[in-house]
Amino acid sequence: LQVNNNGVISFGVRVHQYTPEPFPLADGRPFVAPYWGDVDNVLGGEVYFRETTQPGLLARVTRDINRYFPSMPFTATWAFLATWDHVAYYGSTTSKGNTFQAVLTTDTRLSFIILNYWDIQWTTGAASDGDPETGLGGTPAHAGFNSGDATHYYNIPGSETPAILNVTQTSNVNVPGRWVFQVDDFKVTGVPTDPPEEEKGAQKNHCWL
């Protein structure tokens, strides 16, 4: 696994491209894109990642996956977490930062990806034609999953549009700020919708691991 500072986890080969493209990609690169954009963590923020078999965390992952996919008995035996913590955008002249996370997990038979969005303040870096003062405009960030073929992929609604700024309030599992995919036999649970009525206007979500 390669954790790239541009908001992408790739398999085998690093991804240097910072301006996103919609999935499926013509060149067949498989990767997870929690927030594929023009990140510059030299200007601000950190990128952390770890592999874990820690029982407490695996229990939380197990609980969540069983809630979202109740017909598939699942007990996580491994997880990989990557967190982009208050990362800046290229060319930024502000203190804006985005915080988001990707979790890969398996029980050796079933595999899932969880994407968590805690705080999104910008969509675009200057090299993708974004405004250095706002982090908006140009080609906004892209979120989703690309398996490397023309069939198994998903573009989170709002990707590469200004609406991706609101990904903290969207979900396919009724948890604002969380998107979940089954990737061993590709499935996207739920139906993309607006945030639940009771969550509209909420400033924080409860999706973090």
Rank of each mutant, 00 (worst) to 15 (best):
residue 135 G to E: 11
residue 191 V to D: 11
residue 173 V to S: 09
residue 181 F to D: 02
residue 190 G to D: 01
residue 179 W to H: 14
residue 162 P to H: 09
residue 178 R to A: 09
residue 189 T to P: 14
residue 156 I to K: 00
residue 185 D to L: 12
residue 176 P to N: 12
residue 193 T to M: 14
residue 179 W to V: 13
residue 191 V to F: 12
residue 152 H to F: 09
residue 148 G to K: 04
residue 131 D to M: 09
residue 127 A to R: 14
residue 185 D to F: 11
residue 181 F to E: 00
residue 165 L to P: 02
residue 133 E to M: 13
residue 153 Y to A: 01
residue 186 F to L: 07
residue 182 Q to A: 13
residue 188 V to T: 12
residue 187 K to W: 08
residue 131 D to F: 06
residue 159 S to C: 10
residue 144 G to S: 02
residue 135 G to A: 10
residue 130 G to M: 09
residue 170 T to F: 10
residue 148 G to H: 03
residue 169 Q to A: 15
residue 132 P to G: 09
residue 147 S to P: 01
residue 138 G to K: 04
residue 187 K to Y: 11
residue 169 Q to E: 15
residue 152 H to M: 07
residue 173 V to M: 04
residue 175 V to H: 11
residue 141 A to G: 13
residue 169 Q to F: 03
residue 137 G to K: 02
residue 160 E to Y: 09
residue 177 G to F: 05
residue 177 G to N: 02
residue 164 I to T: 08
residue 173 V to Q: 04
residue 176 P to R: 05
residue 161 T to Q: 08
residue 180 V to Y: 01
residue 150 A to F: 13
residue 186 F to H: 03
residue 155 N to H: 02
residue 170 T to E: 04
residue 184 D to I: 05
residue 179 W to D: 03
residue 155 N to P: 00
residue 148 G to L: 05
residue 147 S to I: 02
residue 177 G to S: 04
residue 182 Q to Y: 09
residue 190 G to Q: 05
residue 150 A to G: 11
residue 161 T to P: 01
residue 173 V to W: 07
residue 148 G to F: 05
residue 167 V to P: 02
residue 183 V to H: 07
residue 177 G to H: 03
residue 151 T to D: 14
residue 152 H to S: 15
residue 137 G to T: 02
residue 135 G to C: 10
residue 148 G to R: 04
residue 133 E to D: 14
residue 160 E to A: 11
residue 161 T to H: 00
residue 135 G to Q: 04
residue 153 Y to T: 02
residue 187 K to S: 09
residue 141 A to I: 00
residue 177 G to L: 08
residue 189 T to V: 15
residue 160 E to P: 00
residue 154 Y to P: 03
residue 130 G to E: 08
residue 190 G to R: 08
residue 145 F to Y: 15
residue 143 A to F: 02
residue 168 T to F: 04
residue 172 N to Q: 06
residue 138 G to H: 07
residue 191 V to W: 11
residue 141 A to S: 15
residue 136 L to D: 06
residue 180 V to Q: 07
residue 167 V to D: 00
residue 172 N to V: 06
residue 186 F to T: 05
residue 180 V to D: 03
residue 129 D to G: 10
residue 161 T to R: 03
residue 155 N to D: 14
residue 186 F to K: 08
residue 131 D to H: 10
residue 141 A to R: 00
residue 178 R to E: 13
residue 127 A to Y: 13
residue 173 V to F: 06
residue 158 G to E: 00
residue 160 E to V: 08
residue 149 D to R: 01
residue 189 T to E: 10
residue 133 E to G: 14
residue 171 S to M: 06
